[in-house]
Design a binder for these strands. Structure first.
Length: 786
DNA sequence: AATCCACTTGTTTTT
DNA sequence: CAAGTGGATT
């Protein structure tokens, strides 16, 4: 233990060793916050507090994983494994699954992602016949989310004068109704959205003191990472759990609070002392990450904000270089400047590509840098954007999983009822929904016995619905016995997803197959590793409950080394890089035009900039463009006010970034060459996709599941089309103007003209009985008869 | 029912 | 520019 403590500085050591009451650790950027948390856990364990009595909460799975592995290094894997460590959402969902019955759910509840939530809200808005131009789904969603995070129930909402007045002023008086229906629907479907995980944990503890007492007893010591980002719901759960013993340690930095748009309340950290008057406060002020110059620059910036906890972050590292500021004529040139600088630094410093990061305010900004880096053959990876689990094909499969685990899941139902297409269209789904509402039952119950509820569909459709029910049911039968991998494979094969993917030989289709393959591989891996940890059978529910809470941050792969990283500043929190480029420092972009209206928004933007700068170890460069292509047009822009917030002495204006460069020379890029580049790069990207292929794939196995779930005519046609080397029309090449053809549906016709290139040749055909039609030869089904 | 096309619309950040 | 929508076409 002595040895352990020697690796800490004075304040770190004090913070670690204080375990008899509440403590707040104010951890400046780069001051060893994770170190304190992990050593503190090790210290608690050494004081004979059993691991299963320690709860550590983080915001990201990544942070939790990293903490666990670092604790493992100190105390061994066997002990670390027993810790209650995870994100708020994952720990709470685990609790809620065990206690589900107490709050009127069952333990197999499924989790809505934000797209599901928005869809449901959209549906409700339609059902209430409200104008979605006024009741914008995204906006309503965030209003509801805020209410939940503040623990305002639908009933309380409808009774709150304040809320109602606000909504009245905002011309959306019916939000209270939407909110109520939304909650009911989620509940009826045995589903929870992200906010519910926090909300219902609170309800559980509030309404069931015996349950609360159990967890208070279990969690003898509670640690919270990134405390400045907690919202009211999170704050209150922690408070309730620690209510008896007060043994809670929260770590955070008010200067890095950047999630208020998600309900994070900076007051939680500012008021910690008044909540726990006996609390000790520790300040970690020595920054081990960055050069003095970077720390000083960041300090001078954040000084412009009011109302923060007094602290004096300092560095004893080298003074370091000044922060470079570069201006570009266009966003395109900005990309070139950054790419060149990366190349230069890599040579002069012998740096690895992975030592570089490009940070931007909005995801849309990544495009230009992708192009400029690719042009120089600099490998890169983009963090964020569409995560693996948000791809359509993956979400579709996951929807099957959800439906199998929890057949009441309404959004999952709507997603897959006609995927792969089985002749159940919007009209039918509409009828099913109406019937379900009428009888106050789930969609699932309706399709179990369509006729029983007088569903107004013909016998064929009724059968299709029933068949779908049987299909899902057949998977569900396996649930208690099969592993996640077994059942997932079965689903992919027998649902027709595999068949459909196999049919599609386009590059996009191939990449979809690959993703599906990867998903199955991932599930396999998941099962294996859980087995290794000593679990007996890893079922689909286990996989699903984990995967629903993964975000794109969590899907990073090992092979991504040796690449320049690009991400939003938000995503960069907690990370560090030798060389940091912060780009797009322009008014209305950073600070965002949205945030400028209120001073608090502006301060948060400034904290965001603070976070960005403090990611840098050695070198930091700030860039802005004088014109930028946004929303389909080029706008001129002004340098960000934040550039003036930093003391001049830490900055170095940079004009000749590129070898021999004098600004104007590069304007050529921003004009003529631009569109060319865009087009060229797009073509390259297509080619790239085409070369991607997998050798082993379930999609290439010759034997396909014979037992087709839906032996309908459509299926037959599909199977015919599935012959990959047998195009619909096998004599495109021979066709000429004047030829007579016989089309499957339009009958006999004569080709009057041909145009377009080989890949997408279009024929104008005059049919005898069907008029003149344009046919894409690639797709049209006909034969040449003369 | 599904696909295609012409049109509008809009953009912050995400556990 | 892009994604999403509504209408027309098959």
């Amino acid at each position: 233990m002595e040895q352990l403590l020697q690796q800490l500085n004075k304040s770190q050591g004090e913070a670690v060793q204080f375990i008899d009451g509440p403590s707040l650790v104010i951890a400046g950027a780069g001051s060893g916050k994770t170190r304190v948390l992990t050593y503190k856990i090790a210290y608690l364990l050494k004081q004979d507090l059993p691991a299963q009595h320690i709860l550590a909460l983080t915001f990201t799975n990544k942070a939790a994983r990293e903490m666990r592995s670092r604790v493992s290094e100190l105390v061994g894997e066997n002990i670390a494994r027993r810790l209650w460590m995870g994100t708020f959402h994952s720990v709470f969902s685990r609790i809620l699954r065990t206690e589900a019955e107490r709050i009127g759910f069952t333990s197999n509840f499924t989790i809505f992602d934000s797209a599901d939530s928005r869809n449901l809200i959209k549906t409700i808005i339609k059902e209430l016949q409200l104008d979605d131009k006024v009741y914008k789904p995204a906006r309503i969603q965030s209003m509801i989310s805020n209410a939940k995070n503040a623990l305002v129930s639908p009933t309380a909402y409808a009774q709150s004068k304040e809320m109602l007045e606000y909504d009245m002023k905002a011309k959306v008086p019916q939000v209270k109704d939407i909110y109520k229906i939304y909650c009911n629907r989620l509940h009826a479907a045995n589903t929870m959205d992200f906010d519910d995980l926090l909300y219902y944990t609170n309800r559980l503890f509030r309404d069931h003191p015996d349950v609360l007492a159990g967890y208070q007893n279990r969690f003898q010591y509670i640690l919270v990472d990134e405390y400045q980002d907690t919202n009211f719901a999170q704050y209150l759960v922690v408070k309730q759990l620690a209510d008896i013993h007060h043994r809670v340690c929260v770590v955070g930095d008010d200067a890095q609070s950047i999630y208020s748009f998600r309900g994070a309340n900076i007051d939680n950290i500012l008021n910690f002392k008044s909540n726990y008057p006996e609390a000790r406060i520790f300040k970690l002020e020595q920054n081990y990450r960055s050069t003095q110059n970077i720390v000083n620059a960041a300090n001078s910036l954040i000084k412009q904000n009011k109302g923060q906890i007094q602290k004096n972050v300092f560095s004893e590292n080298a003074v370091g270089e000044k922060i470079e500021v570069a201006s570009a004529f266009s966003d395109f040139e900005e990309g070139v400047i950054v790419a060149n600088k990366i190349q230069d630094l890599r040579r002069s410093e012998d740096a690895s590509y992975s030592d570089f990061v490009i940070l931007y305010r909005t995801n849309a900004q990544s495009r230009v840098f992708e192009e400029s880096l690719r042009k120089k053959n600099i490998p890169y990876r983009i963090y964020g954007g569409l995560s693996f689990y948000q791809r359509k094909e993956i979400k579709d499969v996951i929807a099957y999983f959800r439906m199998v685990v929890n057949p009441k899941d309404e959004e999952a139902f709507k997603r897959i009822i006609n995927y792969p297409t089985r002749g159940i269209g919007a009209t039918t789904v509409g009828k099913v929904t109406d019937t379900a509402q009428l009888h106050n039952i789930s969609l699932w119950e309706v399709i179990n016995d369509p006729l029983k509820y007088n569903l107004n569909v013909n016998a064929g459709t009724a059968k299709k619905l029933k068949d779908f029910h049987l299909l899902i049911d057949s998977f569900a039968q396996e649930l208690p016995v099969a592993t996640a991998y077994e059942i997932a494979t079965k689903i992919v094969k027998e649902s027709g997803i595999a068949r459909e993917a196999y049919q599609d030989q386009t590059p996009e289709g191939m990449s979809r197959q690959e993703n599906l393959q990867e998903l199955l591989g991932g599930i396999h891996e998941f099962c294996e590793s859980r087995i290794e940890e000593g679990e007996s059978r890893v079922g689909l529910i286990d996989f699903l409950s984990e995967v629903s809470l993964l975000s794109d941050q969590d899907t990073d792969k090992e092979e991504e080394k040796e690449k320049v990283t690009m991400m939003t500043i938000h995503a960069s929190k907690g990370l560090e890089f030798k060389n940091v480029f912060i780009v797009g420092l322009e008014e209305d972009l950073f600070p965002s035009s949205m945030a400028k209206s209120e001073p608090r928004g502006l301060e948060e933007e400034r904290r965001l900039f603070y976070v960005a700068i403090t990611r840098a170890e050695n070198f930091c460069m700030l860039t802005y463009a004088k014109s930028r292509f946004r929303n389909g047009q080029t706008n001129s822009c002004h340098p960000s006010r934040f550039l003036r917030d930093i003391d001049k002495e830490y900055l170095k204006a940079n004009t000749g970034v590129i070898e021999g460069g004098q600004g104007g020379e590069y304007s050529q890029y921003s004009q003529g060459g631009f569109w060319d580049t865009v087009r060229r790069n797009r073509e390259e990207r297509e080619e790239l996709k085409e070369t991607v292929r997998k050798e082993t794939s379930i999609f290439e196995k010759p034997e396909f599941p014979q037992e087709t779930a839906f032996p309908s005519r459509t299926n037959f046609v599909n199977v015919k089309n599935a012959q990959p080397k047998n195009p619909v029309n096998n004599n495109i090449g021979d066709i000429q103007v004047g030829a007579t053809i016989k089309h499957e549906r339009f009958g006999i016709g004569k080709i009057v003209s041909l145009d377009g290139d080989a890949a997408s040749r279009k024929a104008t055909v005059e049919f005898e009985n069907a008029g003149t039609k344009q046919l894409l030869l690639k797709f049209a089904r006909f034969e040449i008869i003369g």
